[in-house]
Amino acid sequence: MNRHHLKTALGVVALSATLLGSTLALPLPNDTRKQTFNLAPGGSVSIVNGGGSVTLHPSTGRQVVITATRYSDKVEIDFTNTPEARRVEARTHVLSAKSTSDESRVDYDVAVPAGISIVVNTSTAPITIENVDGDFSFSSDAGQITVRNAANSFVHVHSLTAPVSLSNLTGVHAEIMSSGGSVQMVSVTGPKVKVSTTSGDITYQGDCSGGGAYSLVTHSGAINVTLPETASVDLSAQSVSGSVINDFPFRERSHNTFVPTPGRSFAGTSHSGSSSVELQSFSGRIRVKQQ
């Protein structure tokens, strides 16, 4: 056997061992499996689940601890990690298309280190993350997505009808897209916050002063913005056929792409106008008020 053949053969053996070793099938129904991985800095964690739940919270050190609970043997859970521990993945496989939603649900409780990238995909399982900073990319058809208490994080969300709730996020880069789910933000500030929905309502509450760019856009959802008197913003609001109501004491100003029309569009500044806020709808009602 020449060197090349030997290398190939060893590679296949090593790879087979890795594959076999890292894919774990659960033995019994209604059971919980817990596994700990040491994640390389800058690594990523990915969870793919249908129904049930995915809850993420901080861990110690570089550890990722995944606890998965299933409620029937009609689902299988795979844990996979790459040899250099750059990526850890947990994935639910539903073995029978006929299984009920109770049978196919899996609850994931995941402890993660700060500063990593986390990708979660679910169908109906709610996704909740608290007190973790990092890059988040969450997607759910119908499971509520909640992000609480994070600083300097990137938050990307895709939702079909899933309600999205963000609170106490500072220095955030958020890009949220939802078709029909509502998007609620309380004390969410950072350089960039962009929310777009087709029919979901968008609510923003808090002081977004500080130089960020906030853009809330919808077709038929309502946009409600509540600002404290101290807010330093440069705001414009525009609706094609919906109403625009402003109850906040802005200094009105001219806008360079539209002429403000009472009830349809509005542009105003408060204090030094440090952050820009753009509200835009087609038929949804836009309302700005003071806290």
Binding site: G180, T198, F282, S283
Partner: peptide
């Protein structure tokens, strides 16, 4: 049904826009 509704809404959005 969810996807159907969502498609209907977004198609209306596109037409309006």
């Amino acid at each position: 049904a969810t996807y159907e509704d969502s498609l209907k809404s977004v198609n209306a959005y596109i037409v309006d826009a």
